[in-house]
Simulated assay, not measured.
Amino acid sequence: MSFLHCMSLLTTLCLLYGCATSPTTTAQQRDTYLQQFIGQSSQSIQANLDLSSIGYQQVLSPAVDAQTLTYTVIRPITIPMPMAQNPADIDSGAIPIQITPRAQSYDVNLQCKIVYRLEQNIAKSVHYTGRTC
């Protein structure tokens, strides 16, 4: 197996691990949670919506106008970095250098917007902008 092939496989496995270690709320669960606020006033939504319960962190105060109620949120994800070691070092009996867990990953904050469409201050639908919702 070539070095490039090994690195590609390792990178793919690490990305899959990163996805597996992200918040456990599924897209369907998030959608169901957000849909329950349709039919409520924008004030009621603002008072009761708990974005942290579905894995989001609110970064700005909600923006409200006559047609929309918009939340800007992030979803923090930790992605592990592959730590390649030279196979010759391992075969020669060299002791691998220990690296702290923090140095083996990096944090990413995936941003999106949750937008409730309002009619006469009542939520009629919800949609998302950004690929991370």
Rank of each mutant, 00 (worst) to 15 (best):
R117Q: 15
V126L: 02
A47E: 10
C133Q: 02
Y128P: 04
K113P: 04
H5Y: 08
I114L: 07
T12V: 09
D50V: 04
A20V: 09
R75W: 05
Q28P: 00
A88K: 11
L15K: 02
S41D: 05
R75H: 06
I97Y: 09
P87I: 14
I99W: 02
F37Y: 14
T25A: 08
L110K: 05
I38K: 11
A20Y: 15
M83S: 15
I54Q: 02
Q67S: 07
S53M: 04
H127Q: 13
I122A: 04
I79G: 01
T129D: 09
L10G: 07
S2F: 10
A84D: 10
S53I: 03
P101Y: 13
Y71A: 01
T26P: 00
T25R: 00
S42D: 12
Q46R: 08
D31V: 05
S2H: 07
Q58S: 06
Y116H: 03
A103R: 08
Y17F: 12
Q67H: 14
Q43C: 07
I90W: 12
S8P: 00
G55E: 02
C19A: 08
T72D: 02
S125W: 13
H5D: 11
I90P: 00
Y71C: 01
M83C: 12
V64P: 01
C6Y: 10
I45H: 02
I45V: 13
T78D: 12
C14D: 02
S22K: 07
A123I: 07
S8M: 09
